[in-house]
């Protein structure tokens, strides 16, 4: 049985979006297919891999495990919203500088989770970084440089904060 579309209003990367969506539409598909924001990836589709991680009201969540209708009224940030114009977010720069990616498929989710971690804990040790990344899988197994990149980003961000 088909169910009628429902109106939702969300803010995605600072821009208001109004849409009518089927209740079963997942947030990740809304972002990718309705808005064309394909930087958010679908890896496992079963809440395991974290490639679909976005920020909803400032919290890292798996957008394959949330309905678009549940996001009505929410502020959403995707990987496309992390850079400030041409200036990358420090976590993005860190992944580049510290070779925190190989194939790159998991990277958007890794960046979103790492950015959330550094907002709540500006100086995480390696154990805290690894605990925070438990929900992000890298099939290239490039975890060593991912942890290194996040540590590096934390240093940069603390430095910026101290100098501002």
């Amino acid at each position: 049985m088909e169910h009628s579309a429902l109106p939702i209003n969300v803010t995605v990367n600072g821009k208001a979006q109004a849409a009518e969506v089927e209740p079963r539409l997942l947030l990740v598909h809304f972002l990718r297919e309705n808005l064309g924001l394909t930087g958010t990836h679908v890896g496992c589709d079963t809440s395991q891999c974290g490639a679909c991680t976005v920020h909803v009201n400032g919290l890292a969540v798996k957008s394959c495990t949330m309905l678009a209708v549940q996001a009505d009224g929410a502020e959403i940030t995707t990987i496309e919203g992390m850079a400030d114009g041409p200036v990358l977010h420090p976590v993005q720069t860190a992944f580049q500088e510290q070779h925190g990616l190989q194939c790159g498929y998991c990277t958007p989710g890794m960046v979103m989770t790492a950015a959330h971690l550094l907002e709540t804990n500006p100086d995480p040790d390696d154990d805290a970084i690894k605990h925070a990344l438990e929900g992000n899988l890298c099939r290239c197994t490039g975890y060593v440089n991912i942890v290194k990149a996040i540590r590096w980003a934390a240093e940069q961000m603390r430095g910026q904060h101290a100098s501002s």
Partner: peptide
């Protein structure tokens, strides 16, 4: 429980 993202929702 689960992981960071799961605990957030």
């Amino acid at each position: 429980i689960g992981d960071l993202q799961v605990r957030n929702r």
